[in-house]
Amino acid sequence: MKYIFPLFILVLGTFQPLSAQLKFEREYRLKSREVPPAALEFMQALPFTKKIRWYREEGYQRTSIEAKTKHQSKRYSIEFDTSGQIEDVEVIIKWKNISAETRQLISKQLGQNHQRFRVRKVQIQYTGTPQALREFIAGTSDESRVTIRYELIVKAKTDGQFQRFEYLFSEAGEFIKRALIIDQNSDHLEF
């Protein structure tokens, strides 16, 4: 019995590097009154006119608050930490909206990692100071004060297995990180 706790710690330690590469999120819909005030204030200062949906996302290692809305035909996802501090702003774009040179670099990287791949979703990710992000979304400043990255959801065949990955690339197309997405079972839809 006395060995159980050290064994648990050992097992946890063994799996930690692995879990860092895994992406599993559980999300709950939040009512506006459940959202941290700082996040609400940030959103209220923006020129969004459409309905804002709030979510709490729980991952393996972190929890975040996310606001989703549509603005000028673009789908926005604004992520905050649990205290309401802005973390990043993501906008869904098309693969072809990325410059040809960057696309080529990203494709080369994906080709090296996987036998086959298909880019299913692309988001442009903006990070920076709250003020810089606010001004950028409001259209009162350009992209020079924010950092741009690309977040991709990729379906890929690796070692004979079909899996989904979340990739993050820099604006220039340099690889930053990737995580294997833990997909839900679909046996109840197949059988």
Binding site: R26, E27, Y28, R29, Y55, Q184, H188, L189
Partner: peptide
């Protein structure tokens, strides 16, 4: 044709109801 809709959030998570 089968469809699955979560009753909470955007995907069906543990301890959640859904419509199929």
């Amino acid at each position: 044709l089968s469809t699955e809709w979560p009753l909470k959030g955007q995907s069906v998570d543990p301890r959640e109801f859904y419509i199929k």
